[in-house]
Design a protein around this nucleic acid. Structure first.
Length: 828
RNA sequence: GCGGCAGUGGCGGAAUCGGCAGACGCGCUAGAUUCAGGAUCUAGUCUGUGUACGCAGGUGGGGGUUCAAGUCCCUUCUGCCGCACCA
């Protein structure tokens, strides 16, 4: 018995972490002779401390990385920091510490925590987005987008968070509130920078097809967010004016059913339309009232539809009819053209509005059954049918009608078929300090001038005052904004807005490939070798924002020949949340369990093992203190098992072949190799770490059972114990390393090859066959493994229980499932 | 409203291709060890019934297909997530 037989996880974990670090164990370089594998977990925002969600994310990633390494892959497994962002600045306002100081202190702390988890990162490739050597290239990305017409500035109604004092992207507005602080978002008219992600809408949609390794759920969310709809856009002459009203519709087949038009209150034509009319006052009142109502309240589906008549009329180009133009709350300015043709008979919203304001309802699509009557309708008819009251188009089906009306409009110059997307351009300006400055200079002579590449980075100044003014603090730093025009040398002013932090995280996975480049963001050589990411792991909350932006950047970089991949992430695993008492861990709920405490009390191996064992990775996980203790108990059992056998097995050499084993030894070998097969399959094809671990537990139990045998085959026992450690080492890297070395092994267990199962060991002499009558289990028999169907049949019919239970019955047929069961079908 | 996911013991979960429901772990019960507690070990643990071999029922509810259904089909209920007046 070893002298020190207690499982001292603290000493063991510290020892091996130091060993791995000193020996640069996880450093990786490009090696064309081996297949590469890029395992990536979403990098964290350095908020100060790791939480359980991080632990789960990084434990999953670490198992994948270690498993792939043992399987012979050259594995890139990097880590970094999404380090720009509002919390640092808010902390600065609150506590007076500079955002940089706050951020870097947090990084130090969290890095130590990540190391204490036993993660296998190549820290030489660490990336920190707030470092000038990184954001230099975030700015470079901006310049490239600008150069290709994909970064532009426009005055737009934008989402403004009054609490964060900055604008937000559409994707950052949740239920009309700021996703960060929950404050109701306001609309503000501002000059802002945008990235033209809409140019990529169709490709972002189409290429989802090329991602079989992504969860269906995420793809559907992206698809909905892109929101493609086909239809047509056409113009209507406004009566008595030299103006046209353009509308978008997906139902051109119902154009003969138009009985009114509706414009959004913000529509630029509204003022002109009503000028001098008796309705002017009422319209203006309505418009200003709508401005006061929050966007959510106004556009929620439950909101009562309301509007006013403008006094103006448009001419329906299809039939020359005069149609009144209304303004209503239910039409949105930022979708389509901000105006619609209203067909109350065949659109529920138009229907409700028409009922309320007594506008006629005209049926132009007739369903199969009873004829529809506009005045009798209870709701809009949106089903299939044939066109009626539509002149020469009568009789066409909805589908034919759409095509024919569009064709007609195109022939007569009225309009054309178009595709509309819900996706808007990505607003990237932020009126805050702690972000990458937008590399643009405004010159009174030359106008908007991009900063020349050689002048990058545009450095964030360190001396800044933080006050919540609603303007970028950079506005008050003269030495920052005062500059000269790079074209003509005139005194000029820098852009003082910074970039959305999602810009930084849209390309960091490329940077990991060659993180030390100073003149270019990354080399083609490195990205050609490493990209795409083979397995990306992170929370589902990034399903739209980050994952869509990263796809957009990758496609752009592909187009400008910086990358040779069009999609950044081949496989995506969206992990579930970590819950406690049924809800997400949060400070406000007071149900937070600190990873540091768990690691301190039980060790990192226990923490990792529990979190991977409690639930499959994509599902939510309920935290259980007792479950943690269970995981710890298991590791103690493994510890004792190895320590109690280590002396016995030290001098045992494993044979090349196993012959003449007794039944118990054969059974243990079977279990050993069946476990290899099961664990390999669970990790490789399903990421079901929970069942992989339970299989390892079963093997542990089987080894302990075997040890109670009087006669033990030490070779078989040693093989089983070694296999147990090797299979367990990706999950619990420290204890397995320690026990492996105590068994007398000179090299790290993490340098072992992943074991292959021996098919010979899985061959059984006898197997159990279940005997059923009418699908109910009646008996089990042991039969020779090679028994034929006829032999099985004979044995079954000869079985005493089967004979007994079928003696007064007619046997209708017998179903044999080889290797599993036999079912005797009987009738009385 | 639309879209997606899920519903299995006291709990977390397993059952991968239609073939033994409840693996593994937690909890609980009894016993061993112990002054005691803790730790550890052994046995048991879906429900009903029976001394027992067993028998019957059982995967949210109802119906169906099949020799055989947690798994497939129809229908319905509940919970969670996403989107939501997108013309």
């Amino acid at each position: 018995m070893e002298h020190n037989s207690k499982y001292d996880f603290k000493a063991i974990e510290a020892k091996w972490q130091a060993y791995w670090e000193e020996n640069h164990f996880y450093k990786v370089t490009e090696d064309p002779s081996r297949p590469k594998y890029y395992a990536l977990e979403m990098f964290p925002y350095p908020s100060g401390n790791l939480h359980m969600g991080h632990v789960r994310n990084y434990a999953i990633g670490d198992v994948v990385a270690r498993f792939k390494t043992m399987n012979g892959y050259n594995v890139l497994h990097p880590m970094g920091w999404d380090a720009f962002g509002l919390p640092a600045e808010n902390a600065a306002i609150k506590h007076g510490a500079h955002p940089a100081k706050w951020t870097y202190a947090n990084i130090d702390n969290m890095k130590a925590q990540l190391k204490s988890l036993g993660t296998s990162y190549d820290w030489d490739r660490e990336v920190t987005t707030c470092n000038p050597d990184y954001y230099k290239f975030t700015q470079w990305m901006f310049l490239k987008l600008y150069e290709h017409g994909l970064a532009y500035k426009k005055n737009a109604a934008v989402n403004w968070c009054p609490s964060c004092q900055t604008v937000l992207a559409n994707e950052q507005v949740v239920d009309g509130a700021c996703e960060r602080c929950d404050t109701t978002v306001e609309k503000k008219q501002l000059e802002q920078w945008f990235f033209k992600i809409t140019d990529y809408a169709q490709r972002l949609l189409d290429d989802l097809e090329k991602l079989p390794g992504w969860p269906e759920k995420v793809k559907i969310m992206q698809k909905n967010w892109i929101g493609r709809s086909e239809g047509c856009q056409f113009s209507m002459q406004i009566e008595g004016m030299d103006e046209k009203l353009t509308v978008f519709t997906t139902r051109p087949d119902t154009v003969f059913g138009v009985t009114f038009m509706v414009m959004a209150p913000e529509h630029p034509l509204v003022e002109k339309l009503v000028a001098g009319k008796p309705e002017e006052k009422a319209v203006k009142e309505f418009v200003s009232r709508m401005q006061l109502v929050s966007e959510v309240a106004r556009t929620s589906a439950e909101a009562e539809k309301e509007g006013v008549f403008t006094g103006a009329y448009a001419i329906n180009p299809m039939n020359g009819e005069r149609v009144p133009i209304w303004i209503a709350n239910y039409v949105l300015m930022d979708y389509g053209t901000g105006a619609i043709m209203a067909v109350p008979a065949h659109d529920q919203r138009d229907f409700e509005f028409a009922r309320k304001y007594n506008i006629p309802i005209r049926v132009v699509i007739q369903g199969e059954d009873t004829p529809l009557d506009g005045s009798q309708l209870r709701e809009a008819y949106v089903g299939h049918g044939r066109m009626v009251n539509s002149g020469s188009f009568d009789g066409l089906s909805v589908e034919e009608g759409k095509a024919r009306v569009i064709a007609y409009m195109q022939e007569h110059g009225i309009g054309e078929g178009t595709v509309n997307y819900r996706l808007r351009d990505w607003l990237i300006s932020r009126q805050r300090y702690w972000g990458a400055p937008i590399p643009i200079i405004y010159c009174p002579q030359c106008g908007t001038v991009p900063v020349p590449e050689k002048d990058l980075p545009v450095m964030l100044p360190m001396e800044v005052e933080f006050r919540p003014t609603g303007e970028s603090p950079l506005n008050y730093v003269e030495e920052f904004y005062k500059t000269t025009c790079p074209v003509c040398g005139t005194e000029a002013r820098r852009e003082t807005d910074t970039m959305d932090t999602f810009v930084c995280s849209s390309w960091y996975f490329d940077r990991y490939c060659s993180p030390h480049e100073t003149e270019i963001p990354f080399t083609r050589e490195a990205t050609d070798y490493w990209m795409p990411v083979d397995q990306y792991i992170g929370g589902v909350e990034h399903a739209i924002l980050h994952l869509m932006y990263a796809r957009f950047f990758t496609k752009f970089l592909y187009d400008i020949k910086m990358l040779n991949v069009e999609e950044p992430f081949t496989n995506l695993l969206t992990q579930g949340m970590v819950l406690k008492d049924g809800s997400k861990m949060s400070k406000s709920k007071g149900n937070v369990v600190s990873p540091e405490e768990i690691i301190d009390t039980y060790g990192a191996d226990t923490a990792r093992l529990f979190i991977l064992f409690a639930s499959p990775p994509e599902k939510d996980l309920e935290w259980s203190d007792q479950g943690v203790e269970g995981a710890h108990r298991f590791l103690n059992r493994v510890w004792r098992l190895v320590m109690e056998t280590v002396d016995l097995l030290r001098e045992v050499n494993l044979p090349a072949e196993y012959k003449e084993l007794d039944a118990a030894a054969k059974a243990l070998r079977f279990k050993t190799h069946a476990t290899i097969k099961k664990v390999t399959d669970d990790i490789e094809t399903r990421f079901n770490f929970n069942t992989a671990i339970s299989a390892i537990m079963e093997l542990t139990n089987a080894i302990n059972d075997y040890r109670s045998q009087e006669e033990q085959d030490l070779c078989v026992l040693k093989e089983a114990v070694q296999t147990l450690l090797v299979l367990l080492c990706p999950f619990a890297p420290h204890i397995t390393e320690e026990l492996w070395s105590r068994m007398g092994n000179q090299t790290s267990i993490h340098l072992q090859s992943w074991p292959a199962y021996d098919p010979e060991a899985l061959v059984q002499d006898e197997i159990e066959i279940v005997l059923q009558i009418n699908g109910k289990v009646r008996d089990r028999i042991m039969v020779p493994a090679g028994a034929s169907e006829d032999e099985l049949r004979a044995m079954a019919l000869n079985n005493s229980r089967i004979r007994e239970l079928t003696k007064d019955q007619n046997i209708v047929k017998i179903i044999v499932v080889p290797g599993k069961l036999l079912n005797v079908v009987v009738k009385p």
